[in-house]
Design a protein around this nucleic acid. Structure first.
Length: 876
RNA sequence: GGGCGAUUAGCUCAGUUGGUUCAGAGCAUCUGCCUUACAAGCAGAGGGUCGGCGGUUCGACUCCGUCAUCGCCCA
């Protein structure tokens, strides 16, 4: 068989993916096995794969593949999110590039464009996931706005409304003037930006005196309805009950006092614009101040401003500055750094704005969700997110769920006059309700007007684990009963509150059950400078190119190796390179084994028998460790252990021991044992590297059509004892020591050496056949005497000699032995310091004391041996 | 401004109830090898006063306090 020495993933990956699809291995339907379920965090329907998706979906695939091999009925539900604001923004931009303005279209026309766009670009991202090897049940692919999901969302809304949890209210919202919609608190990104602080004089009514107020937004002076100071601020005590004149607006407003005002900031005097600042708004409520909204929805000044009407808010700021300066009201302007909130989607500066919105009361319904995480019914991995979660949930605020967009689930509220409305799942039901409510039987659909707003995207995603199984429309259906609650959720910590917390809330609210048992929070993929990977920075590699270059297996390993849960992953190309190298290592180990001729007549060499016995134990023990890592969601560590098991133990030690001499055959027993171990190693590696393991699985033994490693049963960890592992470690040390001697003395591996072991009955010689083979030894003898003309070395407490013909460098060896003696004496001193301490003897547990005594004894033996050796060397 | 978390080798990180699994891993670096599976490899080596300072303890990377630096969340 002629197998190339480099593994080429491009020749295998697509082929195996088609094979899996063709045989329906990803398909899951309820049966009597234990279910294991993951719902994908639905990527934006028109998005493309980025590095974060790669990491996230690799982890999900590892978990799913492992569960499947453990005999569970593994179901990974894929889908996409309609991403209302992001998608709408893209469609608007696309139309604009074609010279079409959104405002010139009807809602229906716009939605037609949006659906076209969705159908054209939608689902590309899911196709990309296939390249990664994702074993989703594609027959279940969903969309948050497909028919069933749409109905679910509407139904959920109506339910909550009827429970009195949804209300319509005037609130200060984060207004995105570019998208002309409210956005949630979570969608506002605050960053420090350079700005200016303007000091403006306000005249005290009825006098010629002025007070000075500091503000960053002089244009909002037009909406001022008070000026305020801290009640403890002595400087302004005299103004109690006085009124001041707002510049430009020439309006008389009261001077008030409120604890909110920071006496240190600016002049200690604050202008109050209740309609355009959240804190001012609250002060306004406390003091019953009028609210003057001076902005239009697009961020230009409205009639109510009385000035600069129709000007953009930033232009108005300049105009205000000019006018204040001209009229002598501007005292000074300082440079000032302040936190500015910008829309996550459009990057427009957020305008706090009073508007009528739909809200969901959160306090009550989040209680079970908070408890679920605190009691561990839902586990967060890593658990450090528990505190963060609690903090957020305890301070949860009502959720603004309406968005002034068209792309999304339209709010199922129908108005039958300006302010009164009914909420229902369908137009017909709405009409029925409206007739009943008004007592007017003659109302027709034409008299009803549906609310223009759509729901926040997250209002559909928070139902995802339920709607994936149609659990809102059809609560008791077989899928729902079988798959729900799902098992694990894998997502980024960034959306812990946007999404995860709300899903837990919805889980308890709509099903009375948690939506999932474990949440694995991945890190964020960053570049070497710790910058988040983003398109605008251009620092994100193209995932599909990486797959092309390193193979999906290589990339998966690269991403997983250094991303413990919750830790950011600093990406660079050496990661998938390491993964690719590992694939190549596996490939070459396979080539080696496949190259052997089998001779059924030859007996199994002793060394091979010992190697098999040890390898089996090593395999079993590592399997136990890997199981334990998975239970703790320490996937990187599980992979690292797998990696070392294959590379170091299996390839580095085991194969080297059993390897027949060049062109000599291997005995059948060893061969069979090796194939068996190799196959089991492939199974352990499979969840991490699905493609190469499948390829080898099919090449290493006869397989029938339709067989696959991905549906084979994962080896089971048996209770292990480390009978051989410790002894083998000693053998490794001896082999290393002899290798070092060969290297130092320039003795080629082909020259046979003799080994003498000084007997003190403590070395059982169990692995001597292995040592003989690995070091190409001729004779191995026990001796009670020092061996002359030999190099000696010490492993643990036993001395070994290798007789050599070349002259032994006595001086060099003496020096080294003395250094070792010094070190051992130092070590003993530390041990003795403890043992001589009466308090230690009394206070420490007996096994700890015992251990120290053993250390003492071993050190003493070693010192004696070293001292004898030195004496002998000196006399030479 | 409020809260949470982190700081261990050049880099990325383990280190579970304080004590031989205790100072570790991978990568990177350095040295020597193209040795018939693999140079995408093999054999070796070096490298850290566990952020600083105090405290508790027979004993501290581990517990407590404090300072410093960084990150994240919220305002």
């Amino acid at each position: 068989m002629n197998i190339p020495s480099r593994y080429d993933p491009r020749k295998t990956e697509d082929r195996w993916y088609s094979y899996w699809m063709q045989h329906g291995f990803f398909r899951s339907v309820p049966d009597d096995r234990e279910p294991y379920t993951i719902v994908i965090p639905p990527p934006n329907v028109t998005g493309v794969l980025h590095m974060g998706h790669m990491l996230n979906n690799t982890i999900q695939d590892v978990l799913i593949r492992r569960a499947r091999m453990l005999g569970k009925n593994a179901c990974w539900v894929p889908g996409t999110d309609h991403a209302s604001i992001a998608t709408e923004a893209k469609v608007v931009a696309k139309l604009k590039s074609e010279g079409i303005e959104k405002r010139d279209l009807t809602r229906e026309e716009f939605l037609k464009h949006a659906w076209e766009w969705t159908h054209k670009h939608g689902g590309i991202i899911l196709e990309q996931l296939k390249k990664l090897g994702a074993s989703c049940d594609w027959e279940r692919t969903l969309f948050t706005m497909d028919e069933k999901r749409y109905r679910s969302v509407i139904k959920a809304f109506v339910q909550l409304y009827n429970k009195g949890l949804i209300y319509r209210g005037v609130r200060m919202v984060n207004w995105d003037p570019e998208a002309r919609t409210a956005v949630s608190d979570e969608e506002v990104i605050y960053t420090e930006e350079q700005s200016k602080l303007y000091y403006v004089k306000y005249r005290i009514a009825g006098t010629d005196d002025f007070i000075t107020v500091a503000t960053t937004r002089p244009e909002t002076i037009l909406g001022d309805t008070a000026v305020c100071a801290n009640p403890r601020d002595k400087r302004y005590k005299y103004l109690a009950g006085k009124r001041v004149i707002v510049p430009m607006a020439e309006r008389e407003v009261p001077f008030i006092f409120d604890d909110y005002v920071d006496m240190e900031f600016g002049t200690g005097c604050l202008k109050i614009t209740p309609a355009h600042d959240i804190n001012d708004y609250e002060i306004g409520l406390r003091h019953n101040l009028p609210m003057i909204d001076i902005f239009n929805d697009d961020g230009t000044l409205s009639e109510k401003a009385g000035k600069f009407i129709g000007q953009d808010r930033f232009r108005a700021r300049e105009l205000a500055e000019e006018e204040l300066r001209r009229t002598g009201h501007l005292v000074k302007v300082e440079k000032y750094t302040t936190k500015i909130g910008r829309s996550e989607r459009t990057n427009a500066v957020i305008e706090p704005k009073l508007s009528v919105q739909w809200f969901l009361k959160m306090k009550e319904i989040s209680v079970p969700a908070l408890n679920a995480v605190l009691t561990g019914e839902v586990m967060l991995h890593p658990s450090k997110f528990k505190n963060l979660y609690r903090h957020w949930m305890e301070n949860v605020r009502d959720w603004c769920i309406s968005r002034q967009l068209w792309w999304g689930h339209r709010i199922p509220a129908w108005y039958y006059n300006d302010n009164e409305f009914v909420v229902a799942e369908t137009e017909e039901e709405a009409l029925e309700l409206a007739r009943r409510k008004t007592g007017n039987k003659h109302l027709t659909l034409k008299d009803l007007r549906q609310d223009e707003d759509v729901l926040d995207t997250w209002f559909s995603s928070w139902l995802w684990p339920i709607t994936c199984f149609d659990g809102i429309n059809n609560p008791g259906n077989p899928d729902m009963k079988y798959y729900y609650p799902t098992s694990d959720l894998v997502t980024a910590p960034e959306i812990l509150f946007f999404w995860v917390a709300r899903m837990i809330i919805a889980g308890y609210e709509f099903t009375g059950k948690k939506p999932f048992s474990n949440v694995y929070l991945t890190g964020i993929v960053r570049d070497q400078q710790r910058r988040k990977m983003s398109k605008s920075l251009g620092n994100s590699p193209e995932p599909l190119e990486l797959i092309e270059k390193y193979g999906a297996d290589g990339l998966r390993v690269g991403m997983l190796l250094c991303s413990p849960a919750g830790n950011d992953l600093l990406y660079n190309d050496s990661l998938p390179e390491q993964g690719r190298n590992f694939a190549n290592k596996i490939w070459n180990a396979f080539r080696l084994v496949k190259s052997w001729k089998i001779d059924e007549k030859i007996a199994q060499p002793e060394a091979s028998a010992l190697a098999v016995e040890w390898m089996e134990e090593m395999f079993n023990r590592t399997l136990g460790e890997i199981d334990s890592d998975f239970r703790k969601y320490r996937i990187s560590e599980a992979l690292m252990k797998t990696y070392k098991l294959f590379w170091d133990e299996f390839s580095g030690w085991y194969l080297e021991i059993i390897k027949p001499e060049y062109q000599k055959p291997v005995d059948l027993k060893t061969y069979n044992a090796t194939i068996s171990i190799f196959e089991r190693l492939m199974q352990v590696i499979h969840p991490f590297m699905p493609f190469i393991t499948e390829e080898i699985w099919h090449l290493i033994s006869e397989r029938k059509e339709g067989e696959s490693i991905m549906v084979s049963r994962m080896p089971v960890h048996k209770k292990h004892h480390d009978r051989f592992i410790h002894r083998f470690e000693v053998a490794k040390e001896i082999i290393s020591a002899i290798r070092a001697i060969r290297k130092e003395k320039n003795i080629p591996q082909a020259d046979k050496l003799d080994l003498y072991i000084k007997t003190d009955n403590s070395y059982d010689g169990y692995y001597l056949p292995v040592i003989r083979k690995m070091c190409n030894l001729n004779e191995i003898k026990y001796t009670e005497e020092k061996v002359q003309e030999a190099i000696s070395f010490l492993v643990r407490t036993i001395e070994y000699y290798i007789p050599v013909r070349t002259k032994v460098d006595t001086a060099e060896e003496l020096k080294r032995t003395r250094e070792e003696l010094e070190y051992t004496k130092g070590f003993l001193a530390i041990v003795m310091k403890k043992l001589d301490n009466e308090k230690f003897i009394r206070g420490a547990p007996s096994d700890v004391v015992e251990r120290e005594r053993k250390k003492q004894a071993d050190a003493l033996v070693k010192i004696k041996a070293l001292e004898e050796k030195i004496k002998e060397l000196e006399n030479r």
